[in-house]
Amino acid sequence: MAVNKKIYYIAGAALLILLLMKGNKALAAVTKNQKIRDCDPFGCGNFGASRGSRKHQGIDLVVSPGQDIFSPITGKVTRIAYPYASDLSYKGLEIVNEQYRVKIFYINPTVAIPSVVTAGQKIAEAQNIAAKYGSTMTNHVHFEVRNALNQVIDPTNLF
């Protein structure tokens, strides 16, 4: 009888730990599928992938043009960003809170500065980045995260 009771306590503790770990993710999903872009002729979508003389400072999440994009954090929209100085048709957002500064590019924002957004709230729709580079580029949104010290961090395992 005492052995069965111990097994139940151990199983219960293990379940509680799993539930706490699952619910303790730092970021909410940016897209429904949350798939990192594989390699295509224009590069790879993983954090740290080569970009010529530099490294990719975010991850690229596969999307379809027009797909809903969600805020990964609760925070304030601090700016509309433009990844290409020569082409202002492509946009991004920066959202900031006490822990993180996140940027999402290749989107049509549906929120404005200085909106306060909540994690999981729709904030944009995905743009068609393949229209700029050609059909061999996988459509994606670029997502990067910095900590409170403004250091780039790998968001891959924060979801």
Results as ranks from 00 to 15, higher is better:
K55T: 14
H56K: 06
K76M: 10
L61H: 06
I59K: 11
G52F: 09
A81F: 15
L61A: 09
P83C: 09
I80R: 07
G48Q: 05
Y82E: 09
K76Y: 08
P65F: 09
V62Y: 05
H56F: 06
V63N: 01
P72C: 01
Q57P: 00
H56I: 05
S53F: 15
A49D: 03
V62K: 03
F70N: 02
R79I: 12
L61E: 07
D68C: 05
V63T: 10
D68W: 11
A81L: 15
S64E: 11
I59V: 15
A49F: 07
G52H: 01
P83Y: 11
K55M: 11
S64D: 07
I69Y: 10
P65A: 13
S53A: 14
G58F: 13
G66I: 00
V62Q: 03
Y84G: 00
R51E: 10
K55P: 00
Q67T: 05
K55Q: 14
V77N: 09
S64M: 06
G75S: 04
P65E: 07
A81G: 06
D68H: 10
S50P: 01
S86D: 14
S71P: 00
G58I: 15
I59P: 05
R79V: 13
Q57G: 08
Y84E: 02
V62D: 05
S64Q: 08
D60W: 12
R79F: 11
S86A: 14
G75E: 03
P72A: 01
P83G: 07
P65Q: 07
S53R: 15
L61M: 07
R51I: 08
S50R: 11
P72V: 03
A49T: 03
A81C: 10
T78C: 04
I69N: 05
A81N: 08
G58R: 04
K76H: 02
A49L: 02
T74Q: 01
P72I: 03
A81Y: 15
I80C: 07
P65R: 07
F70K: 05
G52T: 04
S50L: 14
S71F: 12
S53H: 14
V62S: 02
Q57H: 09
R51L: 12
Y84K: 00
G48K: 04
I80D: 08
K55W: 12
S50A: 15
S71A: 08
A49H: 08
G58M: 11
K76E: 11
G75A: 08
R51Y: 07
S71H: 05
V62M: 07
T74W: 03
I59W: 14
K55D: 10
S50H: 14
G66W: 01
S86T: 14
G66T: 00
R51A: 05
G66R: 00
G66K: 00
T78H: 09
V62L: 06
P65S: 11
I73E: 00
